[in-house]
Amino acid sequence: MRDLKVRIASSAAEISQDTWNEIGEPGHPFLNGDFLRILEESGVAIPAAGWQPLHLVATQAQSVVGLLPLYLKTHSHGDFIYDWNWKSVWERFGHRYYPRLVSGLPYTPVAGSRLLISKRCTNGDQVRQALVDAARQVVTDNGFSSWHAALASPADIETLEAAGLLVSHDVQFHWNDADFGDFDGFLQSFSAEKRRKVRAERRRAVESGLRITVRHGGDIGADEWPALHAIYKSTFDRFGNYAAFSPECFAELATTLGDRMVVFTASDGVEPVALSLCFRSNDTLFGRYWGARRQVDSLHFELCFYQGIDYCLREGLTRFEPGAGGEHKIARGFTPQIVRSAHWIPDPGMRRIIAPHLERQQSGVAAYRDDATTHLPFRKSVASLA
């Protein structure tokens, strides 16, 4: 333990690719150095955009044994902490909430490991504790309000809660394969009425006359990304939100991640009309971005949900996480799942205020999950297994 040290890396690129390959998750599109490096180098996750990389690197005997992705954030956009009201609470008591530290994936609501430990490490618990202690020390040394581990894995939540972090709860909707075989097999698990509704939606998408294609990142030329990006950006513009990614960022992600990026596109024979941009690991498809140049009946459901389920069943993926929010996913066979984040709040007074709020939230989220489960489209014999 005496030679276990933690340092700060000012960029993902400062950490060698060999280290990321050894410590990250094999085949994962996000828990690797490529994704974070490209977002940082393309201007998506940089200080000017409110994301200052301060990644923690644990070393022992001159070898990297642990990583904790970490950003200094000056806003709450794109980190999925859902702490929009916390700023006013801090200010009411004479404190400043921003900046604060966040461990997570920029603009990516995907749960997973945040305390990344080398597979060769024989003292993993000590390394995890060293990373936690280092993150808390950064908060203390700089007078930051807090540190948040966004959408951490169950194992990480256990470690963080034991270390004194508060835990928040939220619900996402995920699809899981139950040996359906193909899409028709999946629909056989639905009640008759719900099955008819899905088939009607898919039929309307076909009757639109649009041609749907499925391609991986390496199959898409760099010259195609400006048009695809314009479709992605249109959704954000429509709702007055900020489209963080650039065409160049998408193009480099596509080239670098290759088969780990999956793009579902609907075209009218001349140009793309809509797209759903996803990523995949060895067993999970992650839905991320949707955009359309015009409204087409049921096309959103087709590109964002049904094509993704079809893809999973063809490719042998067992899980589909289509993104945050969206109660409309329930009727399409996505089950409610509780996801959690952890929060280090060093100020005792602010901690006493936030802790009861998170306790009430936990019971409310659990009740919501239970209620949402009763609205799943599955036949009763199947729903009892969900």
Rank of each mutant, 00 (worst) to 15 (best):
R2T: 15
K5S: 14
A9Q: 12
A9V: 08
A13H: 11
A13S: 15
D18G: 14
T19N: 04
I23E: 06
E25D: 10
P26A: 08
H28L: 00
F30P: 01
F35E: 03
P47S: 10
A48W: 06
W51N: 09
P53M: 09
A58D: 01
A58H: 01
A61L: 12
V64S: 14
V64D: 11
L68T: 04
L72C: 11
H75N: 14
Y82W: 15
D83S: 10
S88H: 15
R92H: 15
H95Q: 15
L101R: 05
P106T: 03
G112M: 00
S118C: 04
T122W: 04
N123H: 14
V127W: 02
Q129S: 10
V132I: 11
D133Q: 04
A134M: 02
A134N: 05
Q137D: 09
V138E: 08
V138D: 07
D141G: 01
N142A: 09
H148I: 01
P154M: 08
L160C: 00
G164H: 02
L166K: 07
V171A: 03
Q172Y: 02
N176K: 15
A178S: 09
F180P: 06
D182T: 07
F183Q: 05
V198S: 05
V198D: 03
R202N: 04
R204T: 07
A205W: 10
V206P: 05
S208P: 07
I212N: 03
I212K: 08
R215W: 01
H216S: 15
G217K: 04
G218E: 10
G221E: 06
T235K: 06
F236D: 04
A243P: 13
F245R: 09
F245K: 05
S246I: 07
F250E: 03
E252I: 08
E252S: 12
A254N: 08
T255G: 14
R260M: 08
D268Y: 10
G269M: 09
V270G: 13
P272N: 13
V273E: 12
L275S: 10
S276I: 11
S281I: 01
Y289H: 12
Q295T: 14
V296Q: 12
S298Q: 13
L299H: 11
L303C: 11
L303V: 08
C312F: 02
C312W: 03
R319P: 07
E321S: 05
E321N: 06
A324K: 09
A324V: 11
K329H: 07
I330L: 13
A331C: 09
A331G: 11
P336A: 01
Q337I: 15
R340T: 03
H343L: 07
G349C: 09
M350L: 11
P356L: 07
L358Q: 01
S363I: 15
V365W: 12
V365G: 04
L376C: 03
P377V: 06
F378A: 04
A383D: 04
S384C: 15
S384Q: 15
